[in-house]
Design a binder for these strands. Structure first.
Length: 359
DNA sequence: TGCCAGGCCCTCTTTAGGGCCTT
């Protein structure tokens, strides 16, 4: 289904390719850069440090097994959820006729899915943050502390490890040029990776090997092309009435704010069931706890410490995603973190919005 | 005047400063 939807979306682009393997090679050798890659089920299962309990590795084991019988695309989307529509705010309106204010129904989850109301923010740029931030603050976002209390978290949570490569460090002046995700439940199409056309010069190709001529092409999707596809992809991976936990190294200061600014530029609303987890504080916590020879809290140090082997060069989005996907279960296991505690450490876009507005 | 990354943590701190982490 996703194949058809993507094909429909990019039907004017003859260079669009969807394929099931060989992403890395294809990325190097073809102009085509949009790929939905079928990969083997998470290799995390075989990591020797995975222990029993409520740690993430165990969650992935259970979660992944379920995904083997719940094939990708098994959810049926009506026309209103296809690519022709923009993001539909997935929140519950208690009585839309009585009040236009929307709230999250975090108590009676079994009765939800009632109303999907399309709300597209007006065109805006980052320079118009005040208007955007005001609109976001009118929404009551889910409280992570409340979500963390759910007893059936494993049935609600989709864990997505992601990474972005950019033209620099400034979320305002720089752009995403490479984005990769991996759904830790595994299964078909559990990864998503594409280059992104930033429509500007790439000054730091020495970092990630992505040169201007590789992305400033008509057959490379711009962010405004990509966001609707990304939303649809994530929606297809979600649990019923569930939440999506996005995980990245230094997510709070870098990846999540970058993603937020790209959504704002595209005038797209950020789904309310997205949460973000930063693994950098977890690595620092491990160092602080002592008893390890972890040299620093960087992703490279974690890869070396846990002896993670990945194909490809570091500082390419998919490679770093694969690294973090293997680091995450053992890191959380070492820290004896439960799913609930991970959710408690997460943050939402509203947190970023509030901080941005304070600045 | 114009330009500028930003969040977190630690300490020789606390109305601050510097290092780490991300590209």
């Amino acid at each position: 289904m996703l194949f058809l939807l993507c094909l429909a979306t990019f039907k004017t682009s003859s260079s669009l390719h969807l394929h099931c393997q060989g992403t890395f090679e294809l990325m190097r050798t073809r102009s085509c850069i949009f790929s939905l890659t079928q990969v083997p089920r998470c290799s995390i299962h075989s990591l020797p440090k995975c222990r029993e309990g409520e740690a993430l590795c165990n969650f992935i084991k259970i979660y992944g097994n379920k995904s083997s019988i719940r094939l990708y695309g098994s959810r049926i989307y009506g026309p209103e959820r296809g690519f022709t529509t923009k993001w539909i705010k997935r929140c519950v309106t208690k009585r839309a006729e009585e009040s236009k204010q929307t709230t999250w129904d975090t108590k009676s989850r079994s009765t939800k899915h009632e109303s999907f109301r399309e709300e597209i923010l007006p065109n805006a740029t980052v320079n118009e943050n005040t208007t955007q931030l005001d609109q976001f603050q009118k929404i009551q976002w889910p409280e992570v502390q409340e979500i963390a209390q759910y007893k059936n978290l494993s049935d609600l949570l989709t864990v997505i490890v992601f990474d972005v490569e950019t033209t620099g460090y400034s979320r305002v002046n720089d752009r995403i040029i490479d984005i990769a995700l991996r759904d830790l439940q595994g299964g078909e199409h559990s990864t998503f990776q594409t280059l992104v056309n930033p429509q500007c010069h790439v000054p730091n190709s020495h970092v990630h090997g992505i040169a201007t001529h590789m992305v400033n092409r008509t057959d490379v999707p711009r962010m405004e092309d990509l966001v609707p596809i990304l939303l649809q992809y994530i929606r297809s991976r979600e649990k019923h009435d569930g939440y999506v936990l996005w995980v990245a190294h230094n997510a709070r200061a870098f990846d999540a704010p970058f993603l937020m600014h790209e959504f704002i530029r595209c005038s797209m609303e950020i789904p309310h069931n997205w949460l973000f987890l930063d693994t950098l504080p977890l690595a620092r916590q491990l160092i602080k706890s002592g008893g390890t020879n972890l040299s620093s809290a960087s992703l490279a140090a974690l890869r070396e410490f846990y002896r993670v082997e990945v194909d490809g060069l570091a500082h390419r989005a998919m490679v770093d995603v694969n690294t973090l996907s293997q680091v995450l279960p053992v890191l959380t296991s070492d820290l004896k973190l439960t799913l609930s505690s991970l959710v408690k450490k997460s943050f939402s876009f509203s947190d970023l919005m509030i901080r941005a507005k304070k600045r």
